[in-house]
Design a protein around this nucleic acid. Structure first.
Length: 274
DNA sequence: AGTATCTCCTGCGTGC
DNA sequence: TGCACGCAGGAGATAC
């Protein structure tokens, strides 16, 4: 499940292969993603030169001059770069190939189809999917003060609020759990009850958690031309995520698992007090 | 505006 | 070995 760190690493991995290249063709094999891939995408993209490749939240943005291609990997999406000479047959979940002018293919696979490939004609930041997004967690714009301000009066749990992309982008279930552990805050704490100090601490924990994950990913995969196919998401040692019943790595207490908003939360009842 | 619930989808693990 | 089932999850849509 690509979260922000995975998307960031993927972005870094594909940038040098894409920037400055022209798109020779877009082959749509299966348009059924979260939203259907535009049937005329090939006509739109053919000949377009890819400018900057950037990330906003979990969206990957390919600037194509006359517009922007928006990619989202959803839950199970992956991108692979197939070297020019290879003829890797497309699998049943390979939705789109972007063929570059040097023959390299950028292939989007997404078995669960929660991902997206959309064309934004005008200012991409004004696109409905991007316009309402909160700050990037790894920038100076995301501060304890901001989180404090944005959580006042909120009765929803801090865990659910963290996963709201209008508050801050890129914090999914895994890293929400991990960051709350690092900050020593119980996931069930009502967001509005957090004081300024704990907001500060939580923001710091989010930044560190995401940073470490990016470092782990950046070192474990450097290229997406892996012809064997699996770019894979990096495996990390989690403090609490997926560790229900196992001993807390810090104090040994059994990790608890609860449901919050249809999602699993994991926490250490000793290290994360209310 | 904030909150709660539903929804999309397939692969995998579990229990029988 | 095979089947039914529950679960996983990003985030938009919908209804209060």
């Amino acid at each position: 499940m690509p979260e922000l760190p995975e998307v960031e690493v993927i972005c870094r991995g594909i940038v040098s292969h894409l920037e400055g290249r022209r798109i020779a063709a877009a082959r749509i094999r299966n348009p059924a993603l979260r939203w259907p891939v535009a049937p005329d995408l090939d006509q739109i993209l053919r000949g377009a030169e890819i400018g900057q490749v950037t990330r906003r939240g979990k969206y990957i943005l390919l600037d194509c001059g006359k517009g922007t291609l928006i990619l989202h990997l959803g839950m199970s999406g992956s991108l692979r770069l197939l070297p020019a000479a290879t003829t890797t047959p497309a699998g049943k979940h390979d939705h789109v190939d972007l063929v570059l002018d040097n023959g390299v293919i950028l292939r989007l696979r997404d078995p669960r189809r929660f991902g997206a490939m959309l064309w934004a004609q005008s200012d991409v930041m004004q696109h409905a999917l991007l316009a309402q997004l909160g700050p990037e967690p790894l920038t100076a714009a995301f501060t304890g003060t901001l989180l404090y301000r944005r959580t006042r009066g909120r009765r929803a749990s801090i865990k659910e609020v963290l996963m709201n992309s209008r508050i801050v982008v890129g914090v999914g279930n895994i890293y929400a759990n991990e960051a709350l552990f690092r900050a020593g805050i119980a996931p069930t704490t009502p967001a509005g009850r957090l004081g300024a100090g704990r907001c500060q601490k939580l923001v710091q924990a989010i930044k560190v958690t995401l940073d470490l994950a990016i470092q782990a990913g950046g070192s474990s995969l450097r290229d997406f031309t892996d012809s064997d196919g699996n770019p894979g998401y990096f495996q990390q040692q989690y403090w609490v995520y997926g560790r229900a019943g196992k001993p807390c790595r810090s104090c040994g207490t059994a990790i608890s698992q609860i449901r919050q908003g249809q999602r699993s939360s994991f926490y250490c009842p000793h290290c994360q007090n209310k």
